[in-house]
Amino acid sequence: MTPPSPSPADPDPAPRASRKAGVWHRLRHHAGVYAVLCRNSLVREMSFKTNFLLWIGVELLWFALQLAFVAVIYQHTESIATWSRWEVVLLVGASQFIQQLFTAVFLTNCVQLSDHVRTGRLDFFLLLPVNPRFLISLRQLDWGAFVNAASALVVMGYAAARLGLRPDALQLAGFGLLCVAGVLIHYALMFMLATVSFWTVQAQGLVWGYYNLFNVARVPDAAFPSGPFKVVFTWVLPMLLVANVPAKLLAEKLSSPWEMLLLLSLAGAVLGISGLVWRLSVRRYTSASS
């Protein structure tokens, strides 16, 4: 792509313009690569159609199981702290929605990083003319997880109707933005754990360990007394924010708009740190098999 010719009014626009064009070019290049990766993933999944459908079934079963837990608990209580039954269903739905979006885009790729390091396959990713982190993080797309994310939205819609909620466009947009922030937080944290595989072969245990923490995200934050647990899972591993804040926005339970700002800025911070950790880790890479 050629940079636009400089206009005579501008004294020296060329470097800026060409840098802008360079960024644009790189973005287009990566978007094109991503489109191919998405298509490949779809083809791969469609060659095992039964398995594809079974996996959707498995995830639906686990989601139903969480909802059953809520139903059982509310047999014995009217509320948990300040949360009513359908508010908790809304929260469990939001947590599932975010988790499934994360699964769709990032999960498989994060889990596979330690394999790439162990087998030395990472060499190839480092050599290709795309950003290696982009390729490693987005190589495979799990299409089935989008179906499950949609089912979570349906449950949320039902819960919202039972609560008599009528979220306006601004609330819905805010919800979308907060969900993206939540997905990025999950991604950044799990990717950091996966980069531990540059130091030890047992990083997969860490990655699956992190997967356990998703269970914390669907518990109402009001259930936790202030203490070390709450501090850690708000500030260090913000599990108590990722699903709670978007759900509270819809249910109009936010104590202050600062909660949203906190979630967004933590997402930025964690992403930044994971970038640093990634660069530090790649420096340690000493190709395994070659």
């Binding site: 608990i73 948990i80 518990v219 009001a222 259930a223 647990f229």
Partner: peptide, 12 residues
């Protein structure tokens, strides 16, 4: 987290 959840239920 589950234990905290139950504590909150009993407290409610």
């Amino acid at each position: 987290a589950t234990l905290y959840l139950w504590r909150a239920i009993y407290a409610s």
